[in-house]
Write a protein that binds this DNA or RNA. Structure first.
Lengths: 208, 208
DNA sequence: ATAATATCGGTATTACAATATCGAAAGGTG
DNA sequence: CACCTTTCGATATTGTAATACCGATATTAT
């Protein structure tokens, strides 16, 4: 499998969703050109992306086999292998993500949540228990947790992150608006809803 | 105000959060170099970003005035002016975002939700009512809604989007994994949690 | 007062992703 | 059966954002 850019990686779920839709409509072949048209991408870019992940080539005037492409994408993204995650911080965003099941189809299993609030500890959201944050290391190490989703206030994020560095965690999906220090072997991915809003606002102002 | 890139725009909330933290600790001046160190960015990049949005220059060996920078960032991002939004599709993700109040401080007011499900219509989440999706145009046009947040299944997204094109909506924040067709004067911003997951998964696999 | 140092802003340069161009191959059309 | 169209993959080229470099300036230290 070839190495592809982050941006290309981010496009894969769009291809997957698009192809599943085509498959459900009984369409067996699609060309890179038509994908590009429908997803508003450049056709060369689509071909490059697909070539990086597909095991078979497309053929001129026919395109790619839809079922094979789906299989290739799913295997490349690795949706069929269970990834175990925990949510740290069950405030409004953490609660929100614990209630959200939309990533199930990507093999993500949110096992439980953690908090410091005594009133929340022991309760559960969407059938997922909330534990005392003191149990972080114990739970992560014993329950084979791969991913920690950080949905907590900025000022405690680094402290919790430091505790995580003592565990077997492999990746952190950070929603706090800070850049965290992590060990080299832990992958850090930053998400920031405010970043999106900032971009949207700029476009609102243009019209005013 | 100079034009800055999308990526730079996405960094602004990090600067803002960082500076507010410094301010709360009683720090009055901060250098671009130290910001770069702490946020793990390149110092030249930070200077370029700050120069684009700041009204005052920083001075050598002193840095920038924290309070002024915060003011400049807030005014550039436009957090003090209320932006009114609706959530379309109150499934698990829509419900999640309606429960989330973290964007209040960015001036985002989520006014209400919309759904087709008779059981949900008339109820409310986090004190925000859920209306019948048939009332979309009426509510958006009469209540000065700027932003529509789309949290609905991929196969209905374009249909709803087409209805939105008949309203006064100014921007769409799309969480459905499809690329929508919109009018030129409506700004479309795509968000895809699966894109982030895809990138994270790739790094998990490396270590295995 | 003078030297050392940290920081600034502006101007290259580099790196990387997106796009344009091209010849070849497969299928359809007159 | 020859020709046109669509699509392919490979190889430039372009465009944009990140980074490195450089001279200038302000503060601190000797």
């Amino acid at each position: 499998m070839k190495k592809i850019s982050k941006q290309a990686m981010a496009r894969l779920p769009y291809y997957l969703s698009y192809l599943k839709d085509k498959k459900s409509k009984g369409i067996d072949f699609v060309s890179a050109s038509s994908i590009a048209r429908d997803l508003k991408l450049n056709d060369v870019q689509v071909r490059k992306d697909l070539n990086s992940i597909a095991t078979n080539h497309g053929s001129p005037h026919v395109g790619h086999n839809v079922k094979n492409l789906i299989k290739d994408l799913e295997s490349y993204i690795d949706v069929n292998y269970e990834k175990r995650a925990v949510i740290i911080g069950t405030g409004s965003l953490g609660k929100a993500l614990m209630s959200y099941d939309g990533l199930d189809s990507y093999g993500l299993n949110i096992v439980c949540g953690f908090d410091v609030n005594k009133n929340l500890i022991g309760s559960s959201i969407n059938d997922r228990p909330i534990y005392d944050i003191k149990r972080l290391k114990e739970v992560i190490d014993n329950q084979n947790i791969d991913i920690a989703i950080l949905t907590l206030p900025a000022y405690v994020a680094q402290d919790v992150c430091d505790i995580l560095m003592e565990t077997k965690i492999k990746a952190i999906w950070n929603y706090a608006p800070v850049k965290l220090r992590v060990k080299d072997d832990v992958y850090l991915h930053n998400e920031n809803l405010a970043s999106s809003l900032t971009i949207i606002y700029k476009h609102l102002k243009k019209e005013d």
